[in-house]
Design a protein around this nucleic acid. Sequence first.
DNA 1: TGAATGATCACG
DNA 2: GTGATCATTCAT
Length: 205
Amino acid sequence: MKLRRSFFARPSPEVARDLLGKVLARRTGDALLRGRIVETEAYTGASDPGSHAFRGPTPRNQVMFGEAGHLYVYFTYGMHHCVNVVTDQPGTAGAVLLRALEPLEGIEVMEANRSGRPLRDLCNGPGKLCQSFGITRDQNGDDLEGSDIWIEDDGFRANAVATSTRVGLSAGADLPFRFFVQGNPFVSRGERPGGPGVRRQREKA
DNA sequence: TGAATGATCACG
DNA sequence: GTGATCATTCAT
């Protein structure tokens, strides 16, 4: 079933953890693209120096301050997009970066979007999954309760959830706000599972 | 390890 | 207006 807004209207670290095992889905033209979320990162607001929202609202980050369940998409390094899900209450900045997916459906389309790269390289990074799903700034602000892009709970439960520090930050690098499915081959290489900063969090049935 | 490549934002 | 920086990816 499709996740509703209430799922997202919580603190971003909670949402980031609970999104592991859920399915990102997008309908584009004829194709239905689906991928299971295996890695996320939480970002908050004024208390998080690593967040785009740390210094308050700007034209780019304004959607992070808005209603939960919308997308925050930004363009970085002059060539890559990253997609987040807005969390928390209006007025409180929060978002969860989707860092890696396990491709489930529409794999041929993803391969075409990624110029024929192998399965494991289709969605194992925030820029890569946006390229596979064709997500650009055109999707910034889109509502996950709509019919173009959404997140499903299909009953699957992620076990062996682990946390670590976030990848690629120069500020806020100490916070344990990265969540991933330990041992899943589709997790990005940002930090080696089992390496420094990584701890086992819990097991689930 | 470093190049690619351009939007964003703080500052003045 | 300008310059440093960037929640990355890929080839070397």
